[in-house]
């Protein structure tokens, strides 16, 4: 800063520093002080985040435990909630609207339940992401940690929730005649890719939500539209048969539909590769990489501004 500001500060500060005459910036440089709360480089930021991995994991587990601790059934709700959802969708779409066209009931029910569980994973990661910073301002204003810890931690919480409900998913698929086989090993890469995608999305939403908290009100509608467009309760190619071909392609290539389809392909015997779009693994990997890396960089760019007002 200029000399005048420094003189101004000397006028009020009683003890005369021996380094008199140096501007604040020079004095800071001389003693190796750094600007408080400045954004670290991207590499440094990744390192800091890695150092906080234990906190990220502990925080996500704590949130998961705290979530249902007041309910009588406790952690059981983790599984019961998506199951009830699936039951409602089955009743409305499967029984009343007959959206199960082209599938036997043995395929449709696991198809629907898998879809609901997998989509809920992305949906709740997005919703938690929106409030990751804006809902934890107290934490952001009290302690130092790379802020990305929060959205990452919330995405991790959703992953743990999904893993817990996977047991029910296995039970449902087995009950309708699809037994564990080698293709079930595909669950692991699908989950890894979807988790990367969800984390990136949570990071993007966290930055957007910290600037515009109103997103928390808007996002449920966006997510619902996305859910209906992704074929959670119907098969996209069959339902859009008489529409222009590009429509079905667009819907099928959207990341939510891709992760759902891959998971169904892995779990359900009667759901073969003819239901998957071309280059499906490349698309799954591409979406994950693009959104995870893009989201991380986007979030990091505003690192020093989280916590303001």
């Amino acid at each position: 800063m200029s000399e005048t500001t420094h003189d101004g500060s000397v006028a009020v500060s009683a003890p005369v520093p021996p380094d008199e005459g140096l501007t604040a910036a020079r004095l800071a440089e001389k003693y190796g002080l750094t600007v408080s709360g400045a954004r670290p480089s991207l590499v440094e930021y990744v390192r800091q985040l890695w150092d906080r991995r234990h906190f990220i994991l502990a925080f996500s587990r704590a949130k998961l435990t705290a979530q249902y601790s007041q309910a009588k059934l406790g952690q059981l709700w983790q599984v019961v909630t998506p199951l009830l959802n699936a039951a409602v969708y089955f009743f409305i779409f499967g029984v009343i609207l007959e959206a199960d066209r082209g599938m036997s009931r043995e395929v449709y029910i696991p198809f629907l339940v898998t879809g609901v569980f997998v989509f809920t994973f992305t949906q709740s990661s997005v919703m938690a992401g929106v409030r990751a910073i804006s809902g934890n301002l107290g934490l952001v204003r009290a302690l130092h940690f790379p802020r990305a810890s929060l959205p990452v931690s919330f995405a991790l919480q959703q992953l743990q929730q999904l893993l817990a409900s996977m047991i029910v998913l296995f039970a449902v698929t087995a009950a309708f005649g699809s037994y564990p086989d080698l293709s079930w090993a595909l669950i692991v890469p699908v989950l890894v890719l979807q988790f990367a995608f969800n984390t990136g999305l949570a990071l993007i939403m966290a930055r957007a939500g910290s600037k515009t908290p109103d997103l928390a009100q808007l996002m449920p509608f966006v997510m619902r539209t996305w859910m209906y467009a992704s074929g959670v309760m119907f098969s996209i190619p069959i339902m859009l048969e008489d529409k222009p071909a590009w429509m079905a392609s667009v819907l099928q290539w959207n990341p939510a539909a891709i992760y759902m389809d891959l998971m169904r392909f892995a779990l359900i015997d009667g759901y073969g590769s003819e239901n998957l779009p071309d280059h499906v693994w490349a698309a799954a990997g591409g979406w994950a990489l693009l959104v995870a890396v893009g989201g991380f960089v986007y979030f990091w760019k505003a690192e020093e501004r989280y916590g303001r007002g």
């Binding site: 910036a25 004095l27 600007v35 408080s36 709360g37 934490l139 952001v140 009290a142 302690l143 916590g307």
Partner: peptide, 23 residues
């Protein structure tokens, strides 16, 4: 460094910390 400055700067030696963990 928990509240961003509107104008001006704070230089510090290392990372100052607030005694408090409530949040």
């Amino acid at each position: 460094g928990l509240l961003p400055a509107e104008k001006g700067k704070v230089y510090t030696d290392g990372q100052p910390s607030l005694l408090g963990v409530n949040a």
